[in-house]
Write a protein that binds this DNA or RNA. Structure first.
Lengths: 340, 340
DNA sequence: CTGAAAGCGCTTACAG
DNA sequence: CTGAAAGCGCTTACAG
């Protein structure tokens, strides 16, 4: 390998100034067509590539977005919720479409966030993704906000704060699922998922669930709600506990697919049939949902759209627009876990 | 927001030169302890962050690794093989542990790769991950190699080329799975997976399969091998075709879990029982494997280890060591799809 | 242990 | 349309 070519090398060969090279390569209208073509030809020949560090340093922007994917340290260390993985895929694509690079970083919720990408001029803005302790989380949001960092987040709305948030319409989605269960003639629906501060999304889904019950004139039975974090194991254990208590129910709402999948395992182990004895629904529509037995009825979140909107929103924010908050509707996907 | 602080601001307040600030912040032994502490305190107070563009431009390295995740355009546009997603997770973690940032980029195999991260000084090296057309792929490898790019790849070995490759011991894994099936008394094993140029990994697994058969003194029946790409749908269709042809088999080896899961669907639809009529094995141990019905026996690839080794290898390569090629053993995970 | 100075490779007013 | 020059914010020989 010989040395990397610089714009000066090109300038020398083209017999023009380095400034002109810079302009020609950026397709500036200020430069003569002929000159431009000559310069570009030489650049290609020398396999010249702009040094991004130099460009970014000079122009004070990076054309890069950072994605912070955070998790509770409660989750085991190798598995990321497939839903977020799917979001990651769509965000990567959306960035590529806009000509932005994506810096990905996993963070433990309880650590100091390594969120200096923007401070550090490595990124123009940040996308936040993940579940985790809400109180801890909010502290960090406030901090980011005070530093003037450009960021958008995925999730439930944060109260008392003006942050650009994109999320699924969890309340409506929860309502829809519970109505679906009632429509199938189910009377007693268990809800597995934390109402704690760890996943506000789950809480919204629960609200939707309650709303549907009330709307139908049913009473809400507190015994039927059991806390659980966002893992298959948590769903399994919570459901097992519920079954052990002898509470009776003919349907179960897992606050996310992973929980629902764990619930299915517990229900089957207990000797009950799905959907005959217990109909089950989840939330997210992760790839697995279609492959469990029986396939899981769920509320699909449109990750492709979500990724695109997150990126669009962030770029708008960077461009100086007001932070926008939006809800994306979920879509009911009926499968075997609720269809006799 | 007031202006971002620079090292000059700190120098001014600390009453030292900017050079000393730079040294102090990098914990250079050249600087007096007292001075260092003072400088660091002021830096913290001003919420100072090193400008990475300036640092990288000056020091000519980026402390960033780029991950190129490529796919055939044949696969549908939203789904990435969960196995690669899992690799992505472990690579991110491994990078973080080494203090490197990770730039992620999805690429269509047939496009010109946007692999200029290193040329462009945005990354010190590149990790390649994915399935795809081998011929196309090799062309690009040669190109990267000629450009002197530092990269390591995940996959089967590439012939006639000295590239740092890390992969699963697919031949041994394939052998192990087939031996497991024979051990369970299965006589006629179908193999679903392309022997074409699209996934050399699959070909190695097939080789292992054949090796096991030969070792046991069995004949290899060409009718029992059907090509399929690496999707659930492809596995489903290939198995359906095999069943339609009336070829008889009592076991089936899917070249990856996704294929095996598709095969399970086809077999069930055909009215056969798993594992009673047909025992099924896959490869990878993606999260789904444990949730299909029945749970899938498979060869687990250790993605945590793989991610760590890929990153370690790349950093060694960047540091000037020789490219190393290694195989990671897979581990047989027995589940219901082969256990009566 | 510290400082003055050069320079990484660009972009972009400024002047023509 | 083009060029000379300044400067983005650092790191690091060099000299003391």
């Amino acid at each position: 390998m010989n040395m990397k070519a610089t714009s000066f090398d090109i300038a020398y060969r083209a017999g023009v100034s380095q400034s002109t090279v810079s302009r020609a390569l950026r397709n500036s209208p200020l430069v003569n067509e002929e000159t431009r073509l000559k310069v570009q030809a030489i650049a290609k020949e020398l396999n010249y590539k702009v040094d991004k560090n130099a460009r970014n340093l000079r122009s004070q922007q990076s054309n890069t977005i950072a994605l912070l994917l955070f998790e509770d340290s409660t989750s085991d260390d190798s598995q990321i919720n497939p839903f977020f993985l799917s979001m990651l895929g769509s965000i990567t694509r959306a960035c590529a479409n806009k000509g932005y690079d994506l810096l990905v970083s996993f963070q433990q919720m309880d650590n100091d966030w390594h969120a200096e990408f923007e401070d550090t001029n490595k990124a123009d803005g940040i996308i936040l993704l993940g579940y985790g302790d809400y109180v801890e989380y909010k502290k960090k949001l406030v901090q980011l906000h005070e530093q003037g960092t450009h960021f958008v987040r995925w999730g439930a709305e944060v109260k008392d704060m003006q942050v650009a948030t994109l999320g699924c319409d969890n309340i409506h989605g929860g309502m829809q699922l519970t109505q679906h269960l009632m429509h199938k003639g189910r009377e007693h629906c268990a809800f597995i998922g934390t109402a704690s501060r760890h996943a506000p999304e789950f809480n919204d889904r629960y609200k939707g669930h309650v709303k549907a019950l009330k709307k139908a004139g049913k009473t809400v039975d507190a015994d039927l709600q059991v806390d659980a974090l966002y893992t298959e194991e948590a769903g399994y254990l919570a459901t097992k506990e519920l079954l052990a208590q002898g509470v009776s129910f003919d349907s179960l709402f897992g606050a996310c697919d992973l929980i629902a999948i764990g619930a299915i395992r517990a229900i089957k182990e207990h000797g009950l049939k799905i959907p005959d004895d217990v109909a089950v629904v989840g939330f997210d529509d992760i790839p697995m949902a279609n492959f469990v037995n029986p396939p899981l009825t769920t509320a699909k979140q449109d990750t492709m759209l979500a990724g695109k909107l997150l990126v669009d929103n962030l770029l708008n924010l960077i461009a100086g627009e007001e932070p926008k908050t939006m809800l994306i509707p979920s879509q009911l996907i009926e499968r075997g876990s609720t269809n006799i």
